[in-house]
Amino acid sequence: MPVTSYLALGAILFSIGLYGVLTKRNAVIVLFSIELMLNAANLNLVAFSKFGLHPSQVGQVFSLFSITVAAAEAAIGIAILFALYRNRGTVEADRMNSLKG
């Protein structure tokens, strides 16, 4: 079944992304990793719109929407990182520990 290879690639990308979010200390890499996870889902959507159980164009449309949303999310993430960097002068995620209880 041709769809399997696409799904496998999607799953690998998603796992790499999740691993990156959970382990990386640099905040920019963390944002990249989230992008990987979202793009894994996009890959799935496009693959399914050709090889799914009921192939249709909707998957392509959905992926366009999710690409837009992912771009907005990345922009917000970078903007928040800028604000953080101005106040603290670092982008290391494990130095962000002022909130605890």
Partner: peptide, 28 residues
């Protein structure tokens, strides 16, 4: 805000990934 955007982004990715399978199974 930073902690929210990172963890929220991961959650959105999970939801989207799940939705992609729903779409694959139903084509709609």
């Amino acid at each position: 805000a930073w902690k929210y955007v990172v963890q929220g982004g991961v959650a959105s990715a999970f939801i989207l990934y799940g939705m992609s399978f729903v779409y694959g199974l139903t084509g709609s």
